[in-house]
Design a binder for these strands. Sequence first.
DNA 1: GTGCAATAGTTGGACGTCCAACTATTCTGG
DNA 2: CCAGAATAGTTGGACGTCCAACTATTGCAC
Lengths: 163, 163
Amino acid sequence: MDDRVDLIQEAKRNWDKRGWAESTAMAAATSITRAHQIILARVNDVLAHHGLTFSRYEALVLIGFTKRGALPMGKIGQRLQVHPTSVTNAIDRLEAAGYVTRLPHPTDRRTTLAAITEAGRMTVELATKDLEAIRYGLDTVNAETTTGIVDLLSEVRHSAGDF
Amino acid sequence: MDDRVDLIQEAKRNWDKRGWAESTAMAAATSITRAHQIILARVNDVLAHHGLTFSRYEALVLIGFTKRGALPMGKIGQRLQVHPTSVTNAIDRLEAAGYVTRLPHPTDRRTTLAAITEAGRMTVELATKDLEAIRYGLDTVNAETTTGIVDLLSEVRHSAGDF
DNA sequence: GTGCAATAGTTGGACGTCCAACTATTCTGG
DNA sequence: CCAGAATAGTTGGACGTCCAACTATTGCAC
């Protein structure tokens, strides 16, 4: 059907022809980069209708999952495994959109709590329905493949010290 | 060994508890994001010693693979599947580092050729050896897993229209 | 109980990615 | 043969990520 050549397979062949080692690892690293690019584009397309991006959505969901609907900035960074400045950035924009409010921590004045608003909760529900409709960017992929991706990449994550 | 909880599995559980659908797809999308983050950090760590990043390395290798050691900007973007402006950005920095030179196309004056320099060729060889040593960021992962990642993600790429 | 180390968050800057808009050149259809 | 369409590349701006450096607060060791 498709007589064109897979770009990553083509790169792998060039690697081998050149006598370079680890061409499969190169292909895997490149595949992950490209898959990330594809999925992020799809997900962000959908989330843009709600004034969100994937990273902001992740933060907003995380806050909404807590009992009190609030979480210290630092905790958000730990759970999402991003740098503290990325959290500051995301919460800035969520706050500007009215989805989150910054509150002082009751006992530790160093800490800032990000608290979800009613508008935030509403938006999370709607955005999640939209993301489910596109299977978080994987709607063109078999369910078994999806499961396999989670399994294989968990080895990558765990071997990198993720928990 | 590790009594801590996998963050993505934990997120998946929360999804399910909430009654949200497609929690596996969410886990897959999140896993890809995290794996990308891990691998990019490792690869860029190594490449920084050569004044490179992964995207610049990819462009430089691609140019070096051609017969004449030169490629139009647009072709680079097509092969690496990035936006034309990303190519401009990468070539700007490669040129500043002395790894590439911009040349006018002999017959089409709209086109700019990016040509690799001797320093560029030398650097690609050294950087490639360093990347092989860390298996392009996958040195902590089994070979079978690496192959599996390429296979599974090829379905993602192909189903997205990649060729 | 006090001074220094650790922790929490922010600001400013670098980088890669994308998009919209723009210039320059080439192609093409009537 | 020429006007409009298509192509090639760049600039400027938005966004997410990271790091280094900074302020404010808390904790701890002696």
